[in-house]
Simulated assay, not measured.
Amino acid sequence: MADAGMMDLTHDREMLRTLYAPATGAFSMVDVPLLPFAVWDGEGLPELSSISTAIRNLYTAIYPIRRHARERMGKSFVEPPVELLYWADDMREWAAGHRNNWRWRAQITLPVWADARDLEDSAAEMRQELGLAAPLRWDAFAEGKCVQMLHIGHTDDVPVILERLYREYLPQAGLEPSGPYHEIYLDDWSRVSPAKRKLILRQPVRTRPN
């Protein structure tokens, strides 16, 4: 049974669009509600090889849940995107780009009916593919007030966008970062050209103290 305070995105299509289809090329505000996730905690530096392995394992672990959701929802089923969160214990290390001190995790939204036991059972069904060690867990959290933007194009442009976000947009709006930086990948990048890749950039924020 879904938590009474948890958002069911399969029924709230307007919120689904707000969270996963924001404006392109412009910052916008969003209040991200309580959502359930399958989380794969990153190990080591956030290198492409380790992130790719984590994403592959995460999709493998939740395959039985995705199959069940597809059977229950039929044509209404929408494949959830993979999301990556990055942070540092001292966020000045994140802001300075010192990747050696970054921490990260991969996550995918789950149906509200899929609880921690369902995720455990799903991973157990895929144990042969995953191996014995699986830093997988169920979590539910609300990011709350965030600034986000949909970027379409090369990822080389992202640092420039983030510079504008942190140096210009947030200070001018009287805001400051309040949580891990968040990227949501709307495409399978192995099938989409770099110029057409869709990426949501999201940053939880709070009002700056006077």
Rank of each mutant, 00 (worst) to 15 (best):
C146E: 01
V147A: 05
L150W: 02
L150Y: 00
L150F: 05
H151R: 07
I152N: 01
G153P: 04
H154Y: 03
H154A: 06
T155K: 06
T155E: 06
D156P: 00
D156M: 01
D157K: 09
V158R: 04
P159M: 07
V160R: 13
V160Y: 09
L162A: 04
L162I: 14
L162C: 07
L162D: 02
E163M: 09
L165I: 08
L165G: 00
Y166H: 13
R167L: 09
R167C: 10
R167V: 13
E168Q: 12
Q172C: 04
A173D: 05
G174T: 03
L175P: 07
E176M: 13
S178G: 14
S178D: 15
S178T: 12
G179Q: 12
G179E: 10
P180K: 10
Y181A: 15
E183W: 13
I184G: 03
I184W: 07
I184D: 09
Y185D: 10
L186R: 14
D188M: 07
W189R: 04
W189S: 07
W189D: 12
S190L: 07
S190K: 09
R191K: 11
P194M: 03
A195P: 00
A195V: 03
K196D: 10
R197G: 00
R197E: 00
L199F: 03
I200C: 04
L201M: 08
L201I: 12
L201N: 01
